[in-house]
Amino acid sequence: MSDYQQEIVRLLPRLRRMAWALARGNGSAGADGDDLLQRTVERALERADERKAGIRLDLWMMRVMKNLWIDEMRMRNRWNRLVEPMPEHDVVGDEGAIADGVIDAVELARIRAMVEELPEEQRLAVKLVLLGGHSYTEAAEILEVPEGTLTSRLARGRAALLQRYQTGRTRH
């Protein structure tokens, strides 16, 4: 095993967590995260020479992963508009007579859907910080924006989630 490969292997737990954080969403079980991790590693092996001198391998790979995921989401959204039916979570959420335990599961699915519906910039900030466990500084570095931009996107996203969640609750 080359040094480069060994270095990537050491980064795998963090990379896998980030792939999970980005890809784990509504309707995506865990397979998307595995795919994203695999494609990130493939890219890092194929294009090692594209890494600029001075940039840490972990940060570079995380940016590669972020870019792959953004491209993929944009591609999917284009196709979804053509072929996919609208998500049905709102319909499920409005059925009142289900047992409490199911409502818990439905509620959690609804929260996941709300996160997925955030604008891309806010969604990435929320996912990296809350699910990926990245610090503000690291999340800003991955997204290649100043930290102030990251914190502002994060705050807007979380304020929107809170507001939507509370609005949804009062409907029941």
Binding site: A109, I111, L131
Partner: peptide, 9 residues
């Protein structure tokens, strides 16, 4: 939000 996505790997 954290519970909705379940435990990380």
């Amino acid at each position: 939000i954290v519970s909705a996505f379940g435990p990380p790997p």
